[in-house]
Amino acid sequence: MIRLQNIHKSYITGTNKLHVLKGIDLHIKEGELVSIMGSSGSGKSTLLNILGLLDNHDEGAYTLNQEEIKAMSETKAAKLRNNLLGFVFQSFNLISFKNAMENVALPLYYQKVARKKRNKTALEYLDKMGLKDWAEHMPNELSGGQKQRVAIARSIITQPKIILADEPTGALDSATSVEVMNLLKEINQSGITVIIVTHENDIAHMTDRIINLKDGRIESIIENNKINSKETIKIPQE
């Protein structure tokens, strides 16, 4: 599903050049549940942004769904993001003047789905998240966990192949974090590839594979299948 070969990325800030990714080789198969770990500055968010076509890479080859991703027009990238990818962010990134249902339905608007149909679909997805009663609420009337569930509903409404989650539990308490992780695991079990960026060990350990980044390079990859089996997930104690 995703294949990266020797990916490089630098940021130029003023006169300094910051080399963030220094040659990443990675292969993520369809249906995997992967986490990318690393301390801040390790380049994990940059990697996720490149994977999500939110940012472009400087060097190397990126193949997404058998398609070579090179410098492409924003319009093309937007279409790919819309059809193939779903995003979950640490800060939820809901549109503040739209209610939960409208937020969830928005990706379908860009697929030119009729208003009634997309609102109906959005309600179904909210129902799956247990938020049907909150459909008419504005984001600022929802708790953090609820907001993230709305964001997850939004990310899967287009039935994407890949969900990219950037610190999805970063702004949540531990109990809610587990709920959100369970949702992401459920999504994964429905066949969707899920890639989670996190700096929390316990979150990473709920995934199949942990990719450890350090200074823009992959330090290690830990296969983690055991933990991801049907075992119950323990609520982490602080």
Binding site: F87, L94, Y110
Partner: peptide
């Protein structure tokens, strides 16, 4: 700007 970023992330094209 942020709203535009969100819209773009979920698939809005620049022209839209």
């Amino acid at each position: 700007t942020k709203e535009i970023g969100i819209r773009k992330a979920i698939g809005a094209s620049p022209s839209s």
